[in-house]
Design a protein around this nucleic acid. Sequence first.
DNA 1: GAGCCGATATTCT
DNA 2: GAATATCGGCTCC
Length: 183
Amino acid sequence: MIGLLSASAPEVAPQLVGWQLRSTIGGARVAVEIEEVEAYTADDPASHSATGRSLRNASMFGPAGTAYVYLSYGIHWCLNVVTGPTGDGQAVLLRGARVVEGRRTVVERRGRADHLTDGPGKLCQALGITGHQDGIDLTASSELRLIRQPSRPVVATPRIGISKATDRPWRWLVDRSVTSGPA
DNA sequence: GAGCCGATATTCT
DNA sequence: GAATATCGGCTCC
């Protein structure tokens, strides 16, 4: 799995769609299937690593499989999976997922029963992810771990929520037309 | 369903 | 002091 994650973010990102992310944070078990991702590279103006290493993005320069968790807009935690060579500053942002286990816990954490994990901030809240998980190894940690699954058909689109390099088609989501409609 | 807008913290200018 | 890889609540279709 590490070998696979060592490829560049735009190569790894589409393959991550369909994988599971399991959390035991706070003693509750929650599992989701990744449905939407975005790739960010070091020479990417929209990437946090573009301006060099800093206190906030330090873990983005760690080895492949490292979790890079940051606070967005002062409110929302967002989870990235570091890819590429150590020190390169590449990562895949997890934007959306489908709850496959621990739905009760997720509803409790989110305070609502709809739109549980359809955004990076919501995804982290659902799994209980905060800055505490920044820098952990997603291939070995017991509280937050990636589980490899067969990749699913994806479609590529431009990234959203950013103001630079918006022309790069580095967002991937499950191709609903191939998987015969929403679950 | 789409579009506007305020809330809020850390970083960088 | 401005910008930001967002969200939820509100409006108006």
